[in-house]
Amino acid sequence: MPGIKNNFDEYWRGLFDNQRQNNIDLLRAIAVISVFIHHAQSTFGGDFPFFGEYGGQFGPQLFFLISGYLISASCTRHPLTDYAIHRIFRIIPAYLLFFLGIGLFNGVISWDNISQAPWEFLANILLMQHLFPKALLHYDTLHVTWTLTVEVLWYASAPLLLWRRSLSTATVMGITLFSSAWAYAANQHVFDGFYPGVTDVNPGFSYLFLANHFFSQICFFAFGAWIFFHKDRLRKVNPFLLMMLAVLLFILRKYYFIYNPIFITGIGLGLLMLAGINSPAFRSKGVFIISEVSYSIYLCHFPVLLMVKNIWQISGYLGVAVSILLTLTLSVISYIFLEKPAINFGKHLTKSKFPLSSTSAQKNLDTHPGR
């Protein structure tokens, strides 16, 4: 099958071709590295500055901003059916690979389990597990999938929110007010009654399922979308000034962090994103590779960390190094043999009806569809 082999060769070479790299790649790499550091520290111990403690919040929120920016481009430039097909073939194949593969490997997914909890299994297949706590807890194989539910809900909301192909500042302020009200109320346990038998058993589940609900996170997507629609008139803002303001907000975090998540961290991340957009592209093959395979890294890194520590009994710096190597290996394999072919197949399904733009900007957006 020479055609398929040639495609795989092309995907492999493309992984090292960073001529199309931009600073969104850099931001995505920073996001996934911060999450990895946070989970590595929680698994192996240590005291890594900032990301060790806050990477589990910083990374997902930065991912949400990036998604807000890129999905705004995708859903406003493609017909709705094409947009949906692109999203499905972007996130579902790799997710199913790791969810089913790791679940079968560690015994969480079995015929007996599925027969006992079929609806919970279906919720996981459809990436709706964060809305149904028992579904996520019963099949928690990847330990990060709550963010995927949040992401999918953004995919569904974006065409409705952006139907006028614009996003006003007033709308973003309204979304932020609603999001903040939900997050604050959830932190005060106002909504705990929504999940009886869950939040009362473990108070931490109130934070996981209610404080981290899509309604709390939608402001981050809205910030990214607002930057996309207003980026042309924001081009002249000095990136160094933006970066300094972002750093200042992170330094002052302890003074405003009265509930979590809080929209102010999203403003800081928005300043960071805009600083990247307004700066010359930082080109690094290593950063580009991490960015390209970041989705698979995100999906598989936590189970890998736990396997290396608990099953292989490797600890310390060696355990972290082995985890990095194994995570990157699995992610590159997933990217070349599944992610990239699935993305291109989704484009092929839509190209016959609606030819995609061949402009460099459109190529870049199709190359970076969300995460």
Rank of each mutant, 00 (worst) to 15 (best):
E151W: 03
S115D: 03
H143G: 02
I102K: 07
N113F: 09
I102E: 00
I114N: 02
A123T: 10
A135L: 07
D112H: 11
T147F: 11
T145Y: 12
K134S: 11
H138S: 15
T149C: 13
L142Y: 14
I102Q: 01
N113P: 11
L148K: 08
I91R: 06
H86F: 14
I114K: 14
H138A: 07
Y95E: 09
T149K: 13
F89L: 03
R90G: 01
F99K: 00
S110P: 03
S110T: 08
I91Q: 03
I114Q: 08
G107D: 07
W146G: 10
N106Q: 10
H130Y: 02
M128T: 11
G101T: 01
K134M: 14
L148G: 01
W111Q: 09
W119C: 12
H130W: 07
I92H: 04
H130Q: 15
L131I: 07
T147D: 04
G103L: 03
V144Y: 03
E120F: 11
H130I: 04
Y139E: 05
F98W: 05
H138M: 15
A123E: 06
W111R: 12
W119V: 15
A94W: 00
L142K: 09
I92R: 10
M128R: 05
M128V: 11
L127F: 13
Q129W: 11
F132H: 10
L136P: 03
L126D: 13
L97H: 06
S115I: 11
R87N: 09
H138F: 09
A94N: 14
L96Q: 14
L122R: 02
L148R: 05
R90T: 02
N124S: 01
P93Q: 01
Q129G: 09
P133N: 09
A84W: 12
Q116K: 11
S110D: 10
E151A: 10
V152G: 01
L100A: 03
M128P: 12
Q129P: 07
